[in-house]
Design a protein around this nucleic acid. Structure first.
Lengths: 230, 230
DNA sequence: ACATATGAGTTGTTCGACAATCCAACAAGA
DNA sequence: TCTTGTTGGATTGTCGAACAACTCATATGT
């Protein structure tokens, strides 16, 4: 075989080669991370030549990675103009929250929703710790985990994926806000409250509370979103 | 503008140029159609060289189209082995029907569900006509339109897209059945029944009926799916 | 001032190359 | 015979270069 010499470096290296991701996947993951943490700002263009240079990959590979993120709706392609980090419109935010109310409230109202309690509790603690040190990006991560724990109780891989994609998309809107503090702070306590309601076996009440919670979050986001015009 | 000469052929031609699709998109659409109508059988491999020759496009363009259909879960990639038309497992079918019950029943129970009535009625008629002439593929199309009309009443673009993708995915399983007749026939009348319940403003009853309907469809599909082993 | 032409820069698509990997067929040894 | 390498061909993964098609800003002509 060719290049056996390089594999001699150690067994860990060999195993790593087995379930390695393709370059395309690595690039897509890297871009997704940069988008979600705000390094690639909403609305900014992703120029092929520039990114191929920055990432050290070919245009073909980069374009395959683009397709992945376009399918996830984190990027949009404008034909012959370029690929851009998606900008969420007010209508998108409303749509996303409508879906969240539909799925999350249904999941929380079901008796099985207590299955997600350990994950939810852990997420609440992580969020509090992160907030205490002012790491609002990590607070956002923990909040995503919290809501994923709710929908995980449905036990459906597709619901999981849908929610994951939906919450990632929503984070595009978070970054348009000047201070993430104002967005996340009010909901730290309410997450805690939902946990307690579930601990006391009052899932239906929790579901109703969550509906109001999501309404408030939607309004807050819309209020800070609409005045923004480039 | 450039190339005005070519546009003289007619206004339709001009419009076609404006919102023309990229080659990648055309290829993805062509492949999707071939998958859904069964020309590309579930489990079969999509070899790059073979398809580039058949479609007259380059490998790179084909691979970009693959990414689109992989994201739609109609194709799966096995690294270094190839791209295959997805095979649905029993677990997939169960998962899909769980999501359908969640979304469709919620949509139908809501008062707004009567908004979709005209579309639903049209789909029922189309299905009956297609069934009368034995065109079971078109019956399947009409059935998809029927259920999309139900979820359209939610008024969410994302719910629409999710359902569209879900039903496309589900058609992968339909093709594994020997006769589509056995699958669709029992549900022609039940679609009609749902329409009538909605016409009589009994959405909640309709929702309950739909839940049983989906249960039955799931069981029918699972029964014909599990014994199939290549 | 307005319409049109020009040109530089970017995207869309193709081609050819080669490394990495899989797989089936074969060869060698127990 | 059965198992265990070995080998070579076929396929996928990734790259680089090329050119056509298109966008946009600028310059030109009227």
């Amino acid at each position: 075989m060719d290049r056996v010499d390089e594999a001699i470096g150690g067994g860990a290296r060999l195993l790593a080669r087995l379930d390695r991701a393709s370059t395309t996947q690595v690039v897509a993951d890297a871009l997704r991370e940069r988008i979600l943490d705000g390094q690639l700002r909403s609305g900014s263009q992703c120029q092929e030549l520039q990114l191929t240079a920055a990432l050290g990959v070919s245009r073909n590979t980069l374009r395959e990675a683009f397709q992945i993120l376009i399918a996830e709706r984190l990027l949009v392609r404008e034909p012959h103009r370029g690929v851009f980090v998606r900008r969420l419109e007010a209508a998108d935010v409303r749509d996303i929250y409508a879906v969240r109310r539909l799925i999350e409230c249904a999941a929380l109202a079901a008796p099985a929703s207590t299955r997600g309690l350990p994950e939810m509790q852990a997420a609440v603690e992580t969020a509090h710790a992160a907030a205490a040190r002012g790491d609002w990006y990590e607070v956002g991560n923990a909040d995503v985990r919290f809501h994923l724990a709710i929908t995980a109780s449905v036990g459906s891989a597709r619901v999981d994926r849908t929610m994951r994609a939906l919450l990632a998309e929503l984070r595009l809107a978070f970054q348009l806000m000047a201070d993430a503090h104002a967005l996340h702070e009010p909901f730290l306590g309410r997450n805690q409250q939902l946990v307690e309601m579930l601990e006391q076996r009052r899932p239906v009440e929790a579901s109703i509370e969550l509906a109001g919670y999501l309404d408030d979050a939607e309004q807050l986001l819309l209020a800070t979103l609409t005045p923004v015009e480039p």
